[in-house]
Design a binder for these strands. Structure first.
Lengths: 341, 341
DNA sequence: CTGTTAGCGCTTTCAT
DNA sequence: ATGAAAGCGCTAACAG
């Protein structure tokens, strides 16, 4: 070695335990013990091995390690529809934090909210032998997951239950939240209230719509079905739907928006329309506070944390009963239930 | 087999190629060929193997496959500071999409914007033998990455260059964007303009601050240093900083907000203050359009896509010259450069 | 077209 | 405290 103190010789190929063992003059098993922090290694041997590892820039291959150690990976998969939606991004952040705290690594894959993509994306995750699978379900049928669960992979449905309802899950109280929000609009004096929601293919939105309708029933009123829009999956569609409602013959005096995209679209349409209209949205949105926007709020990061926790709990005890968590929503009134500009 | 047509026998242990080979009466290599879609297999053998695989609910172990096939994994790591920030979530979405289109899988790990965590988080990713590493740098020194790059792992710095500037990178034109935004405030007639930015430990924010100052210089003016705040890393701090500015003896008539958190905090403070104040923010924010909020906009998803593309390009050609992409910003004026309520 | 053998990098026996 | 040999599940290399 002619390398000077403090310099590392240039290493161009990846070292293996065997290389380290050779340089340190010990067996591969001893190297393995040192890099895994195992017991039964004398301090001097340990030091020798660590120096050899540093010299060779050795980095343990966790793929090989996991294969040998029973094929149980240390990754957890989160299959999500759309990471660009801040709601799901916040859920993902909660998942990541909880997973990382357990020393596991998070793999994220998106289905782009396309039912047909889900099985393939999930299959790719399962081929990686992920320790657990967290899934925002979008496919119509989840029977294809039954076999996997029998093989012991924890599966947690996030935000919506599986079509088969046969897994741990964490959802929000969609019906109750939507009902509370709608009641707030009714109590502010509104009677003609529009509903702008995403596709009714999603259980979340069906539940929110029925919460909306049930709020009327609870006051002995009936919602005008002509004011219910359930086909506004994005901001632009929600804006158009709201514009359509506001420009009708008998426009609503308030809007209940079924999710964060709908809220933004509805608010944009309302401001463009130069009317004052009441507005409450499901999901918190950034700037809601600054805008005095009333919302049905919840904690998406807690949803992510809970989902990860459910998976970890099932790893601990595969036999435990299915747990289906319903997280509460919280009505936050800031004034827009009366009118917003 | 007594299972009826259409039923699958209950399988409780994970099948391997060996199990499938035995059931199909072929060698493991033939099974391998079939499941990898390889050539040189007769249709009848292929069918036999596929049936056996289905019966046993066989699922290839991609971990073992990759180990055997040279240890080159099909995962790409994205080490991010904070996934709860919609800006970074959007970047992550761009990364995910591009990575997935190449048949690769994305691993996401967060550093919580803590310098000290970065090396450990990065090390964990490298031990997984990720094919490439995308990193939003937060550590002070990135010399620790030099060895890894020599070993051939593409490393791409995202949003900020590495401290060593020794990698491919993709950033926004922070100086130009901030300058354009500030010029718009000056051209709207403002002379006392406050700057609210996140920590000056980040190069992005230093560049935005100098863009802010240089805009004054370009008009032969000088910014009042008392109106420059560079210690507002989150919404609450930005709101407090803005409130402080607005309640000063000679308050600014406009604010330039250094990022999306600062914009939200500043807008909240302005609305609470019941003044009309000009406002332009760096980063687009949801609802900006509805609010008539002028911003220095850009394309975070494009940043993610570009970062992934840089990594893939370097995998293709490890010898190519370093590429340091500067993505443009776009000034979007919606009225708040004059005043916002 | 199909099979045999060896081995990816690591850790698990089981010795010593 | 340390080591030799075997093998995790799969595929490359080379038969045949």
């Amino acid at each position: 070695m002619t390398a000077r103190e403090g310099e590392r010789p240039q290493v161009t190929a990846r070292a293996t335990v065997e290389d380290v063992a050779r340089l340190a003059g010990v067996s591969t098993k001893t190297v393995s013990r040192v890099i895994s922090g195992g017991p039964h290694v004398s301090p001097s041997t340990r030091a020798k091995v660590q120096e050899a590892a540093a010299t060779l820039r050795f980095r343990a291959n966790s793929v090989a390690r996991e294969l040998r150690s029973g094929g149980v990976s240390s990754t957890v998969a989160f299959v999500i529809g759309d990471l660009t939606n801040p709601f799901f991004a916040a859920v993902a952040a909660g998942v990541e934090r909880t997973i990382a705290r357990s020393g596991l690594t998070l793999v994220i894959a998106a289905t782009d909210d396309e039912s047909r993509q889900e099985p393939a994306v999930v299959a790719a995750m399962l081929e990686r032998r992920v320790r657990a699978l967290l899934l925002v379900p979008i496919a119509e049928d989840h029977a294809y997951l039954d076999g996997e669960r029998q093989l012991g992979t924890p599966i947690v449905a996030v935000d919506r239950p599986l079509s088969t309802a046969s897994s741990d899950s964490v959802v929000f109280d969609n019906h109750g939240g939507a009902m509370a929000g709608t009641l707030a609009l009714l109590d502010a004096g509104h009677r003609r209230i529009g509903f702008v929601g995403s596709t009714s293919r999603l259980s979340t939105h069906r539940e929110r719509r029925s919460g909306f309708l049930d709020a009327f029933a609870a006051r002995g009123l009936t919602a005008d079905p002509d004011l219910v829009r359930t086909d506004a999956p994005d901001v632009a569609a929600a804006e158009a739907a709201t514009r359509g409602l506001l420009s009708g013959a008998r426009p609503p005096t308030a809007i209940f928006a079924g999710n964060n995209r709908a809220t933004i679209g509805a608010l944009t349409a309302i401001r463009r329309n130069a009317t004052t209209t009441g507005l409450i949205g499901f999901d918190d949105v950034e700037l809601a506070d600054a805008l005095g926007l009333s919302v049905v709020a919840h904690d998406p990061e807690l949803m992510g944390e809970t989902a990860a926790r459910l998976a970890l709990d099932r790893l601990d005890d595969p036999g435990r009963a299915l747990e289906q968590v319903v997280l509460p929503t919280r009505l936050v009134l800031r004034g827009s239930e009366r009118s917003v500009r």
